[in-house]
Nucleic acid binder design. Structure first.
Lengths: 218, 218
DNA sequence: ACAAAAGTGTTAAATGTACACCCATGT
DNA sequence: ACATGGGTGTACATTTAACACTTTTGT
């Protein structure tokens, strides 16, 4: 039994130095054939947080991702069949965990595909607005959240971390100052491991020290 | 014609050195006789932003206040008659503008009253949770928003400004450092006017220089 | 040997923090 | 004269910002 509101999922990842967002090609009216954020109706007897996880899974194949509320949209004209309120959620996933798994398990959606955030087409409903709000939130919280670490491989190089900062902030940063700042934060664990498979000097790998991070913000 | 979701308004002000929140005593079931945030059903053909302004007015008498979206709540048990989704908004008003005007114009609510944020009773629905989220948002944004200036008289003393910072952050601040920091921001206009009606040395008044503030954050 | 990215320090400026006393006003 | 809050400066520590070259590795 369907409820009278929907949830939408704004799912970001990071791959090849670019910030990406996961979109579905719709197979259902309205907006059939358009690209849209994964989203659907919440069931009558289902908590919204359960629904958003279920729907993320059904439309993308991704499980156990951490979704955080972003905004509610209720414009009278946002949906052609009359006002359908939607609550948008936002999540960050590691590309390596999911690269082969982004495939809808319902046929409401034809496919799921990663788009560079700078190359997103015109989307269904008000989804371009939601994306914009999501990017702003990402930017606001960059320094106070583990967002960058949820989106990177568990072991990452400082250059990868810097690329995320640059992609999210939309500006380039000084390498030395960036590294100094990150070390001073004290929650990066320097590993005795190095990148492999690159044709140049392999970079050292780092991990987030979650304990220290939490201590800092509690 | 009523819609199937509500909006709630979290309205803050500042008076006598304290941060206050505006609550209604309910005259309707459910939660008749309880205190609650001003809130009600959105009309079917009404934009949510219009609704929140209308409802704020009907339940408190306040007009033309700037409300910003805070969070959507949709717990299955939040409303005794089944899930009613609500979108909570947040506003800041000047006590001097409104002190004699907080009076409901509907009889859904018996009265509207300012509560010290530290002395709020158990509220209807999940309104205590919403209040907590609102206070956190206030704190997060304190340095990047005009919140403190919307809540103060247009002409204010530095001590009043400091009291807001202290109330919102929940800690005391050093007077000299606070004043130095505020002057350095460059968007306070020092007036040639002074407090009146106090039985001690009258403090100089200041205004927010909106132009300079906007330049700084755009 | 070349291409590609990794890695590394210093200096100057700006900002933040700790701290205590005299001043002006109304009663 | 006293009670009350208004108003002020200095020294030190920390953080930020600008800036360029050498090292390592794979091909």
């Amino acid at each position: 039994m369907l409820s009278f509101f929907t949830v939408d999922c704004l799912i970001f990842t990071f791959h090849e130095g670019k910030l990406k967002v996961l979109l579905n090609e719709r197979n259902e009216y309205p907006y059939r054939d358009w690209w849209a954020m994964p989203g659907y109706f919440v069931d009558k007897q289902e908590e919204m947080e359960e629904a958003v996880n279920r729907i993320a899974y059904e439309h993308t194949g991704l499980k156990n991702i951490y979704l955080e509320q972003l905004v509610a949209m209720a414009g009278l004209k946002r949906h052609p069949e009359g006002r359908i309120l939607t609550v948008a959620y936002m999540a960050l996933v590691r590309y390596d965990d999911v690269k082969n798994k982004v495939k809808p398990v319902t046929n409401y959606m034809r496919q799921a595909k990663w788009f560079d955030v700078n190359e997103v087409p015109e989307l269904a409903f008000d989804h371009n607005d939601i994306l914009k709000l999501g990017l702003e939130k990402l930017k606001r919280n960059l320094n106070y959240s583990t967002a960058s670490f949820e989106i990177l491989p568990e072991k990452f190089t400082l250059t990868q971390l810097q690329q995320i900062y640059e992609a999210v902030l939309g500006e380039t940063l000084d390498k030395r100052n960036f590294r100094k700042r990150m070390s001073n934060l004290g929650y990066l664990k320097e590993l005795d491991e190095y990148q492999t498979g690159v044709s140049y000097r392999a970079a050292r790998l780092y991990k987030l020290d979650k304990r220290k991070f939490l201590k800092l913000f509690a």
